[in-house]
Design a binder for these strands. Structure first.
Length: 496
RNA sequence: GCCCUCGUCGUCUAGCGGCCUAGGACACAGCCCUUUCACGGCUGCAACAGGGAUUCGAAUUCCCUCGAGGGUACCA
C-alpha cells in the first residue's frame, strides 16, 4: 500500500540554467510546475542545469532562488535542501551521465565522434549555404574498431553521439499541443556527451528526469521539438516516458521574443518596482491559462484548486504591463493593512535616510494613512512617493506658487480665513469631522463653491493639485504641521 | 533552406457544428458618485488573418495562402 502511494506520487521539477535572472517566462514555468505538484499533492523539485561552463554564472543561482522564494514558490527537493534523488546540480552528476553514455556505447546505441568542432562547423555552414538540411554525416560511425582504438590510443579527443534509429516515427501526447510526431530521419545524431565530459541538455535532462522519478514535465514550447530527442534517449535506455506539457511562449509587448536584451524583465525588477508576489503570480497564471469565461482574480488556493493542464492554450501571449499594474493595485487594496504597513515602513525607511530611525512614528501615522490612500496606488514604489508629504516638508514648484495668480477668487483671503478658523481647534478637536465643518463654513459664508476652498488648502498642505482626501489628510498631518504649511504657502503667494 | 507549431477585440482570454446580432478582464472614451486623484457603478468603442471546401448550418471540421513563433549547436 505504501509503495503504491509512493509510486503514484506526482513529482515535478523546475530546471533553470544559471545564465541570468529568473524572468517572466521561467517564473511561469516554475509556477505551473509548483501549482500542479500542489494540486496533486506531489513534490516540487528544483534542479540546476549547469552543464554549459561557458555560459554559467554562479552568482545567478542565488538570484534565481531568491526570486522563487520571494514568489513563495518553495521546493521539496533541491540543491540547498537536498533530497533522496540528489545531487540536484547537474555539474555534480557527471559520473552518472558518463555511465549511461558508456552503457549506450557498449550497446552500440551511441558512438564516439572524433570530428573537431571546427570541422563540424564548416560542414554545417556549407550545407546551409546550399540550402540543404544539415545532418551529421556519420563519418565516425563508420570507423572500424581498429581505427577507433588507434585514435583513442593517440589521445584524440572525442565526443559521444547518439545513434538515431532511421525512419522511425517518434511520437508522444502533449497535454497542450496534442499528438506530436516526428520522423527520426529528421533528427541528427546529436552529441550526448561533449569531449569535455559534460553532457548536453537533451541527454542530461532525460537521464535526470528519469532518475529523479519526474512524472510530469512542464516546460516552455521552445522545448517541444527537443522532446522527441529526449524520447530517443528514453527509448535507448529503456526508460518510461513522463507526461509532457508544453507551455506557449510569452512574448514582449511588441510581439517579439522575450530575451535578455528585449523586454525580458526579471522577477527581481518587479520586486524592486513595488509589485506584490501574489499579483505577479496571478498575472502570470493568466498568460496561457484560464479557468472560465469570467474570472480574472485568483488567490493561490483558488489557482491550486482550479489549475488544470488541459485548459492551457496554445497561443503565444504578449506581456501586458498595464494589466499587471491593475492586478497589483487590486492586491494592494485587498492586502491586510498590517502587512501593508510593514511593507511600507520597509520601503520608506529604505528610501529616506531621515526617516530611518523613526519607525514608531511611521507606524503610528501609517495606521491612519493606509485606509485613506490604498485605493490610489498601483505599486509599492508609487505608494512610498504618494505618502511622503505626510512625513517630509513639502516644497512648492514655481507653477505651484503661481497657481492661483489668475484665478477669479482670492486665494490669499481664503488661506487667511482657513488659518484663523483652524486655529480655533485644539489638538483634541482636530478631527476630520470638525475640520470639514470649519472649512465648509468658510465657503458657505462666502457663497463660494467648496471646491475652490479645497483647491487652495490642498495646494498649500500638499504642494500638489492632487492629494489624498483633504479632511483626513489634514487630521493626520495634525494641527501644527497643517497651520505651518498654510502659513508658508500664504507667505509665498503674498510675496508675489 | 529543411522539419514543425500557432493565428478570436489594441492586450490577456471564453468559445470545442446551431445557445454567437461572439462573452469577460485590462486599456481607451463618456456618464454617475465626489473637495482633487483614485476606488466603485453604468454605458460605449472594439475581434473570429485571407480564400476555398464540407454541411441545412462553421469562430468551431478540412485544404491553400499569408503572418507569427519554435527546432535545426560539443546552448538550455
Amino acid at each position: 500500500m505504501n509503495s503504491k502511494t509512493a509510486d503514484t506520487e506526482t513529482r515535478l521539477r523546475f530546471a533553470p540554467s544559471p545564465t541570468g535572472y529568473l524572468h517572466i517566462g521561467s517564473a511561469r514555468t516554475a509556477f505551473f510546475n509548483w501549482l500542479y505538484a500542489k494540486k496533486t499533492g506531489g513534490k516540487f523539485i528544483l534542479r540546476i542545469e549547469d552543464t554549459d561552463i561557458k555560459r554559467h554564472q554562479e552568482d545567478t543561482i542565488s538570484t534565481i532562488l531568491d526570486s522563487l522564494k520571494w514568489l513563495e514558490i518553495g521546493w521539496d527537493e533541491g540543491p540547498d535542501v537536498g533530497g533522496d534523488y540528489g545531487p540536484y546540480r547537474q555539474s555534480e552528476r557527471l559520473g552518472i551521465y558518463k555511465d549511461y553514455a558508456q552503457k549506450l556505447l557498449e550497446e552500440k546505441k551511441a558512438y564516439r565522434c572524433f570530428c573537431s568542432q571546427e570541422q563540424l562547423r564548416e560542414k554545417r555552414e556549407e550545407a546551409l549555404k546550399i540550402n540543404e538540411f544539415y545532418k551529421y554525416d556519420r563519418r565516425c560511425f563508420n570507423l572500424t574498431e581498429n581505427e577507433i582504438s588507434a585514435k583513442i590510443k593517440s589521445g584524440d579527443k572525442f565526443s559521444i553521439r547518439i545513434l538515431i534509429p532511421q525512419n522511425k516515427i517518434i511520437s508522444f501526447n502533449d497535454n497542450v499541443y496534442g499528438y506530436i510526431k516526428i520522423n527520426s530521419s529528421n533528427v541528427d545524431d546529436f552529441i550526448i556527451l561533449r569531449s569535455s565530459g559534460m553532457p548536453t541538455y537533451n541527454f542530461s535532462a532525460a537521464v535526470d528526469d528519469y532518475l529523479m522519478k519526474i512524472t510530469h514535465v512542464i516546460r516552455g514550447e521552445d522545448h517541444l521539438y527537443n522532446t522527441p530527442k529526449q524520447l530517443i534517449i528514453y527509448d535507448a535506455l529503456g526508460f518510461d516516458y513522463p507526461d509532457f506539457t508544453h507551455l506557449p511562449m510569452i512574448l514582449a509587448a511588441d510581439g517579439q521574443k522575450l530575451s535578455k536584451r528585449h523586454g525580458s524583465i526579471s522577477i527581481e525588477s518587479y520586486r524592486e518596482e513595488g509589485f506584490l508576489p501574489e499579483a505577479v503570480l496571478n498575472y502570470i497564471a493568466l498568460l496561457g491559462w484560464s479557468y472560465d469565461e469570467k474570472t480574472t482574480i485568483f488567490s493561490i488556493d483558488e489557482m491550486t484548486e482550479k489549475f488544470d493542464l488541459k485548459s492551457i492554450n496554445k497561443k503565444a501571449s504578449r506581456f501586458d504591463y498595464e494589466k499587471l499594474l491593475y492586478l497589483n493595485g487590486y492586491y494592494i487594496r485587498e492586502l491586510d493593512e498590517n502587512r501593508l504597513e510593514e511593507i511600507l515602513i520597509h520601503e520608506i525607511t529604505e528610501k529616506n535616510e531621515n526617516l530611518r530611525d523613526k519607525s514608531d512614528f511611521l507606524r503610528e501615522k501609517l495606521g491612519k494613512i493606509i485606509p485613506v490612500t490604498k485605493k490610489r496606488v498601483r505599486t509599492i514604489s508609487d505608494y512610498e512617493k504618494a505618502v511622503l508629504p505626510f512625513f517630509n516638508p513639502v516644497s512648492y514648484s514655481d507653477n505651484t506658487k503661481k497657481y492661483f495668480a489668475k484665478k477669479d477668487f482670492d486665494a490669499k483671503m481664503l488661506l487667511e480665513k482657513s488659518i484663523k478658523s483652524l486655529e480655533n481647534l485644539d489638538d483634541s478637536s482636530f478631527t476630520t469631522e470638525n475640520i470639514e465643518n470649519k472649512l465648509r463654513t468658510i465657503s458657505a459664508n462666502l457663497g463660494l463653491e467648496f471646491k475652490k476652498v479645497a483647491e487652495v488648502i490642498r495646494i498649500a498642505i500638499w504642494g500638489k493639485p492632487v492629494s489624498p482626501p483633504l479632511f483626513e489628510t489634514i487630521e493626520i498631518l495634525g494641527s501644527r504641521t497643517t497651520l505651518l504649511r498654510l502659513k508658508n504657502y500664504l507667505d509665498l503667494i503674498s510675496q508675489a
